[in-house]
C-alpha cells in the first residue's frame, strides 16, 4: 500500500491518518512485540517464562513464586507444615484472584482479624503476642506472597518439629538453609520461601 490519498477535507484528514497509524502500531506493538518477547522467553529462559514451576515425583506441585495454603480443606492449620501468611486472594492463595484485603488502618474488621490471628498463633505455637512478627498476622498485597519472614519461620520450628517428631535443631537448620538474604544484601527484606521450605521438609522426613 503506497500513499493513496483519499479525497478528504483538512478536518477529516487527521482521522484517516490516525486510523492507519493505529492499525500499523497494533501490528508492531500489539502482535510482533509480545510474540518476539515470548519467543525469547521460551527459547532462552523457559523456566522463568513458564512460571518457575516446581516439579516433584508427583508432578507439578506449584510455582516457587506463588504462595500456597498449608491447611486442610476446611482451612484448619496442618501443624506439620510451615504456614504461609494470611491471604486475601479468594478463599486464600487463590492464584486466579490475586489481591489484598484493602482494609484501612482503623477498619474494625482488620483489627478483629489481626487479634484473631494472634490468638491462633499463640495457641498453636505457644508464642506471646510480642514475639509474633507483623507478616504472620497481616495479609499481603497480592494474596500470593510466597514468603514469610525468617522470624515467623523460626517461630514455627518447635511446632513443626514436634508434629513430625524431628529434632528442633534439624528443622531450624533447614529454615536457615532455605532463608534468602536481601537481594544484593540491601534490597527488600530477607525471606523464607514457604513452598521451598516445606518441600525440603518433606525430603527430610522421608530420609529419616
Amino acid at each position: 500500500m503506497s500513499a493513496s490519498r483519499p479525497r478528504t477535507g483538512p478536518l477529516a484528514r487527521p482521522y484517516w491518518v490516525a486510523l492507519r497509524a493505529m492499525l500499523v502500531f497494533t501490528v508492531v506493538l500489539g502482535v510482533a512485540y509480545p510474540l518476539a518477547i515470548t519467543l525469547v522467553g521460551q527459547l532462552a529462559l523457559p523456566a522463568q517464562a513458564n512460571g518457575s514451576l516446581v516439579t516433584t515425583a508427583d508432578g507439578v506441585v506449584g510455582s516457587s513464586l506463588i504462595g500456597q495454603s498449608f491447611t486442610d480443606a476446611d482451612g484448619a492449620v496442618l501443624p506439620e507444615w510451615f504456614q504461609s501468611r494470611p491471604s486475601a486472594a479468594g478463599d486464600g492463595y487463590d492464584a486466579s484472584a490475586s489481591g489484598g484485603s484493602n482494609w484501612g488502618p482503623e477498619n474494625p474488621d482488620l483489627i478483629q482479624a489481626i487479634g484473631d490471628r494472634q490468638a491462633a498463633i499463640e495457641d498453636l505455637d505457644g508464642a506471646t503476642t510480642d514475639e509474633i512478627p507483623a507478616d504472620a498476622v497481616t495479609a499481603s498485597a497480592s494474596g500470593l506472597d510466597p514468603h514469610i519472614s525468617p522470624a515467623y519461620a523460626l517461630l514455627q520450628v518447635p511446632r513443626v518439629a514436634a508434629a513430625r517428631d524431628l529434632p528442633e535443631t534439624e528443622v531450624r537448620a533447614l529454615v536457615e538453609s532455605v532463608e534468602r538474604a536481601r537481594d544484593l544484601r540491601f534490597l527488600g527484606e530477607p525471606t523464607v520461601n514457604v513452598l521451598n521450605l516445606n518441600l525440603e521438609l518433606a525430603t527430610l522426613d522421608f530420609g529419616k
Binding site: 482494609w103 482488620l110 509474633i132 512478627p133 507483623a134 497481616t138 495479609a139 499481603s140 506472597d145 527484606e189
Partner: peptide, 17 residues
C-alpha cells in the same frame, strides 16, 4: 493507627520480599 500498632508493623497489604 490501631491495626498497624496491634500487628507490630504496617505490613497489611505489603509483600514480605
Amino acid at each position: 493507627g490501631a491495626a498497624p500498632a496491634l500487628a507490630g508493623g504496617a505490613m497489611e497489604g505489603k509483600e514480605t520480599r
